[in-house]
């Protein structure tokens, strides 16, 4: 089922995109207008407008959760506020990624949104995603099942793409790395494929977006394949020392190695009893 589904989904995504691509400025302008309109509208609660598609029970359930849990920062109509961005047009993928990994709602506003135990269960997350998707088109959320990376991904190609596009922040082995002023690119070890996919499509927090035109869906699956292989990378030469490069190796040389040798030297120079 999955191959066909995926192909269909891909087609759907690219169709959507082509439609949007037709006039990127228009879209930006439209979003801007919608945003402004919603901003104005939110000042007048009675004048709230709901897009026609946003009437299903799932959407209203999502909206209810949104109003309770998200609107204090993102605005009553997801139009954004001084401390949080607008969510109109970010799509279900962004919701699934941010809420599904526990990054949203944020626990501590002073820091970068961190992965933690999700507050909402998958059903609630799906409802939220449905609500946000109903506001404006955006990348749809995906599931691990319909990402057929084992079949369509190529590990070696994924490695090439990863080193060109991802390793500069996430490190050569996906261990994460430092960004400016305390921000960081998280470790990608153990991250579910769908979240990797959604992050590439939506560009959460500091991360830039990797559109399907610059990294095709197939290439994204290759990156996921490579990451899966990196996740299960065996330790060819013993303890991995964190896979962060020579830093830990130097630490081991300065502690364990020279420590052992000085220990034996001390024993050697000690008079026997």
């Amino acid at each position: 089922m999955t191959i066909m589904n995926m192909k269909k989904r891909m087609k759907k995504i690219s169709a959507l995109r082509r439609k949007r691509i037709a006039g990127p400025i228009l879209v930006v302008a439209a979003l801007f207008t919608i945003g402004t309109a919603f901003g104005v509208a939110s000042a007048l609660p009675s004048a709230q407008q709901t897009p026609a598609s946003a009437t299903s029970p799932l959407v209203s359930q999502g909206k209810a959760i949104f109003l309770r849990g998200c609107s204090s920062c993102h605005g009553l109509n997801a139009e954004g506020g001084s401390i949080a961005p607008a969510l109109i047009g970010v799509g279900g993928a962004a919701v699934d990624f941010q809420v599904g990994t526990g990054r949203m709602p944020m626990a501590d506003m002073s820091m970068q949104a961190m992965q933690k135990k999700p507050l909402y269960d998958p059903a609630q997350t799906a409802a939220l995603a449905a609500y946000i998707s109903s506001l404006a088109p955006g990348p749809a959320s995906v599931t691990n099942e319909n990402l057929n990376w084992e079949r369509d991904g190529n590990i070696a190609q994924g490695g090439q793409l990863f080193r060109t596009n991802c390793a500069m922040c996430h490190n050569f082995a996906g261990q994460g790395g430092a960004l400016t002023n305390g921000k960081y690119a998280p470790s990608l070890m153990g991250v579910e494929p769908k979240y990797v996919y959604e992050a590439m499509v939506t560009g959460p927090q500091s991360m830039p977006k990797f559109t399907d035109a610059t990294i095709t869906p197939q290439e994204k699956l290759s990156i996921i394949s490579w990451l899966q292989s990196a996740n299960h990378e065996q330790n060819q030469g013993g303890a991995s020392l964190g896979r962060v490069g020579p830093f830990t190796e130097g630490l081991v040389a300065w502690t364990l190695a020279i420590g052992l040798l000085i220990g034996v030297s001390t024993w050697l120079a000690l008079k026997a009893k």
Binding site: G159, F172, N235, G238, L241, E249, V252, L256
Partner: peptide, 15 residues
């Protein structure tokens, strides 16, 4: 011992 138990310069990961 270190060569046996502690990975160093895993160039295959660097690419």
């Amino acid at each position: 011992f270190l060569g046996a138990v502690a990975s160093i310069n895993p160039i295959w990961l660097y690419g």
